[in-house]
Design a protein around this nucleic acid. Structure first.
Length: 660
DNA sequence: GAGAACCAGCTTTTT
DNA sequence: GCTGGTTCTC
């Protein structure tokens, strides 16, 4: 690990007061704040007095790992408050939720849960919703998106609709009603969605002063500040109000979460809001001058950005390359060939990364890699925890932990024969009216509600629940008890690939055995999702040599010697939906910027000219982000002959479609 | 009112 | 190919 330069040194030894660090890609920004945290600890600041937050799980993991390394092991950092905004919110609310009207055993609704709840709300509230002059009420997913966007941008529904969803204005009153009902249902079922975690954390800090956990914190640090939204900035302000020791690190050029309400203007507003010093890190320690040159040229096309000039420190490494290939299959073969080449030049697989705009783009490559026996890991949304059977079984633990969890109850109840939406609601209604769940046989009201068809299974269900409640049963045992007991029948009648799913449930149980308490297990599941299981898999991995495939969004903060940026066709990156308005296009360009600046030495861009979607073939042109680069910024590699035969067609613009 | 069977639309990125 | 929604039948 190299020495710190003088500017980095100044930041590391900055002790008191506010500070903003505007830092370019590869300038060591995460390194600087983790260094500072380790430094504070070495100087005797208790780890529990330091809060370090960031937005993504990936970045949070990296941050924690580095601090541990620098501070000399886990023991020295015990008590450190480090993680994502959402997980820190969870810690506060598990302890103090009761102060703002929640039970501390609240459930966290993940994306799917929240959508399910919207679905239920909509079904009840707008039965005659089918049409207003022939138009349909928006789906649960759309409503969920709108409501969440309003929250994250701090906008009233009306204003938001006018600005971004004019076609939904006609539904305004219904949407208001649905949003209000959704809020109420979350409250009665003692659950919080992701937005609530932030909202309630903020609310808690604003209304309850002198919380022990907050009082203890004397140093607040945020990484990737450009990814925060208004409420996150507000939370930070509340946390730092007393001591004023807040350090934010960010790079406006890497702001790629605008679509979910992040606002890189938070960086601009920082000096006004917090005062203090402003540092700049403009030396890039990661990439070759050629790569940096390409990145700088690209980002300069953006009109909305702060002046910043990144200076390369590393030696020259040759021009980045670009190749046009016929389609994804040829592209995959090309990438494979290059991987072999790099390997021959002694670059280990672990020093190569393949990046793409969206997950689907990696499918063909994954297939080829498996065929050739090249080990790889996909760093992206494995939807493991969002599959039906996983959610089904986890629901049992959820209702044990939070008996008012409506979503979990509805899932479970609907597994009973003869019970559908209506009956399930009725039964849940009984639980919530009785302010608790009594499955005892003398609960007459309940017995009446359970249909005759379901009697047998209901009995079995009650027995299973009783068994789960026995002392000393941890999450792992609970899962296998449910999977082998009550759920078994349902699994085999509902899914054609039941044995496979049964295996996955065993796996889930094995995985859960790392967690001693149901609370820890459920929180981790909801907050960290796929990332946590990936970590677990990595631990199991004997061979650490594998290639990484990842979306650009999840690649932030990472770096490799060789980077492949695949699927670089106009309409993919930039994504067709974001060609306008300008701010959206510019965010796409920042995405391109983030992708290329992950690379230290060998950057390879590939363009599949033909893509097959829904049985049609479409001819694309290379991304405009490539075409707008000056000649000499990259070297065009020899693509395939077939691809070349397509080039004359390219002038005709994107989206030229051909029936195959 | 439940549940099977059929049909359409779709695939951006994360907590 | 998969999900979510709708329709049809019992």
């Amino acid at each position: 690990m190299s020495q710190l330069n003088s500017q980095q040194q100044r930041i590391v030894s900055h002790l008191e007061g506010a500070a903003l660090v505007i830092a370019g890609a590869g300038s060591g920004k995460t390194r600087v704040i983790t260094h500072r945290a380790a430094n504070l600890i070495k100087q005797g600041v208790p780890p529990g007095a330091i809060l370090m937050v960031t937005f993504t799980n990936k970045a949070a993991e990296e941050m924690k790992r580095r601090i541990q390394d620098m501070a000399g092991g886990e023991a020295n950092t015990r008590g450190l408050m480090a993680g994502t905004f959402h997980s820190m919110a969870n810690r506060f609310l598990r302890r103090y939720g009761n102060l703002i009207g929640y039970d501390n055993n609240f459930t966290i609704l993940d994306d799917t849960d929240s959508r399910d709840l919207f679905k239920a709300v909509i079904a009840d509230m707008v039965p005659e919703r089918q049409q207003s002059n022939g138009r349909k009420f928006p789906t649960a997913a759309v409503v969920q998106g709108v409501v969440s966007m309003g929250f994250n941008r701090g906008l009233e529904l009306g204003e938001l609709l006018e600005r971004d969803y004019p076609w939904l204005i006609e539904w305004m009153p219904e949407l208001e009603a649905v949003a209000a009902a959704y809020r109420a249902r979350k409250k009665t079922s003692n659950s919080m969605d992701f937005d609530d975690l932030l909202d309630n954390w903020c609310h808690l800090l604003a209304t309850c002063k002198n919380l022990e956990m907050a009082e203890k914190l004397r140093f607040v640090m945020v990484d990737e500040y450009q990814d925060t939204n208004l409420i996150q900035a507000e939370i930070l302000a509340l946390l730092a109000a007393k001591h004023g020791n807040i350090m934010a690190v960010g790079d406006d050029a890497q702001s790629i979460y605008g679509w979910r309400g992040a606002n890189f203007r938070n960086i601009l507003d920082f000096p006004e809001r917090f005062g203090g010093q402003v540092f700049r890190l403009e030396q890039n320690y990661r990439s070759s001058p050629e790569i940096l040159n390409l990145a700088n040229h690209s980002i300069n096309h953006n009109t909305e950005q702060f002046e910043k000039r990144l200076e390369a420190i590393r030696p020259a490494a040759g021009l980045p390359g670009m190749a046009c290939l016929r389609d994804e299959y040829e592209e995959a073969d090309y990438v494979l060939e290059k991987i072999m080449e790099f390997r021959d030049r002694d670059i280990p697989l672990s020093q190569m990364g393949v990046l793409y705009r969206n997950h689907a783009q990696s499918a063909v490559l994954q297939m080829r890699l498996s065929e050739r026996g090249i080990p790889f890991q996909v760093r992206s949304g494995i939807k493991f925890f969002e599959q039906a059977h996983i959610k089904d079984v986890v629901s049992f633990l959820k209702v044990l932990f939070n008996p008012l969890d409506e979503i979990a109850w509805l899932r479970i109840l609907k597994m009973l024969p003869g019970v559908g939406n209506v009956t399930a609601r009725k039964i849940y209604g009984i639980f919530s009216r009785q302010r608790g769940v009594r499955l005892a046989p003398d609960n007459d009201e309940l017995n009446k509600a359970v249909p005759a068809k379901a009697r047998e299974q209901w009995k079995e269900f009650s027995l299973t629940m009783k068994a789960l409640l026995a002392d000393g049963v941890g999450p792992a045992e609970m899962i296998s008890m449910v999977a082998r007991g009550f759920y078994h029948t349902h699994l085999y009648s509902a899914f054609d690939n039941a044995p496979e799913r049964a295996n996955e449930l065993e796996y889930l149980s094995e995985f859960a055995s790392r967690y001693g308490s149901v609370e820890r297990f459920l929180s981790q599941l909801a907050l960290v999702g796929a990332a946590v299981i990936r970590e677990y898999e990595e631990e199991q991995e004997d061979d650490p040599e594998f290639l990484i495939l990842t979306s650009i969004h999840q690649a932030k903060g990472l770096e490799w010697d060789a980077v492949f940026l695949i699927g670089l066709a106009d309409g993919r990156l930039p994504h067709a939906r974001n060609l306008e308005p300008l701010p959206r296009l510019e965010e796409e360009r920042r995405l391109f910027y983030v992708a290329v600046t992950r690379c230290k030495r060998f950057l390879e861009l590939t363009v599949p000219l033909v893509s097959y979607t829904q049985g049609r073939a479409e001819i694309c042109r290379p991304s405009r982000f490539v075409e707008e680069l000056p000649t000499g910024a990259l070297e065009v590699r020899q693509g395939s002959r077939e691809a070349e035969s397509l080039t004359p067609l390219l002038g005709q613009g994107p989206g030229l479609s051909v029936e195959w």
